[in-house]
Design a protein around this nucleic acid. Structure first.
Lengths: 140, 140
DNA sequence: TCATCTGTTCAGACGTCGTCCAAAACTGGA
DNA sequence: TCCAGTTTTGGACGACGTCTGAACAGATGA
């Protein structure tokens, strides 16, 4: 399991000699439970429900700290920065109608053969983005 | 050839009853010749060399007009919005060191089989982003 | 040539997003 | 409980993109 978890974050704060504040806990718990890929603004609004007066600076500090620790990933979709609590290699499906970003397991995209590239780039990782209509938008 | 070309844009302006201004021409010619994937700011700076006092509004208007006409694509990489004058299906290679975005022909990425997705999404298109070191960064 | 009309550009105001800073508040160990 | 070090806060700031109204350019007709 390579999903963000509160226990792992608490262990990291100890190891780094840092402190686990209520705001950080709230941010981590929100990300941990998030089914979608929230934006910084969505994190801020949710945390403010539990801790009104939480500032944007705190949310961005915490998100950047988690990102640098490799506990979350950044996802750029449609010009919007989103955060992904699932850090194992995987791909994304983006709905062109509602903009929803869904995780796609790597195994579902098989046999991706990259032939030798003419520019002699050294490829280290591959990300696949599928676009289309999500199941709920198909019904509408 | 599905690359942006001045002649195609001139034909479009005629068809739409619009006007081909020197500013628009300069923007189109810059994009047409661009080897990399320029940002709006790079377009603005280049156009300002030929037409000082060109405003950001003009550049953004023109870029959005070309985008809506399907003559250029937007590419989001590293939280930066870039414009791609090549609109045929293709993929991208992003250098993790210099951030350069290179085009990769579709044929170079073969046998991409997408198995049935559990969420029953309808997949309409696929984009692959390769990451690694570009040839010039490997030398350093 | 002049007036008019339509579409375009420009400059600046504005809103959003993310970062930075100093002061105040808090956390956790002694 | 106290204290040192860490964190939060709120506001300032800069970058980016959009919007607006006034000025401008080119085509058309009198």
């Amino acid at each position: 399991m390579t999903r963000l978890h509160r226990n792992k974050v608490e262990a990291m704060t100890l190891a780094q000699g840092l402190k686990m504040t209520p705001q950080r806990r709230a941010i981590v718990e929100y990300l941990q439970a998030a089914e979608h890929h929230p934006t910084a603004d969505e994190v801020l609004h949710d945390v403010n429900r539990k801790f009104p007066m939480t500032s944007r600076a705190t949310v961005y500090n915490t998100l950047n700290w988690l990102k640098e620790a490799g506990m979350i990933r950044e996802v750029f979709e449609g010009g919007v920065v989103r955060f992904d609590p699932y850090t194992a290699p995987h791909h994304h499906f983006v709905c062109r109608r509602c903009g929803r970003v869904e995780d796609i397991e790597c195994e579902l995209i098989s046999s991706l053969n990259i032939c030798s590239l003419p520019g002699r780039q050294r490829v280290e990782s591959v990300e696949v983005t599928l676009r289309g209509l999500c199941s709920s938008c198909q019904k509408k």
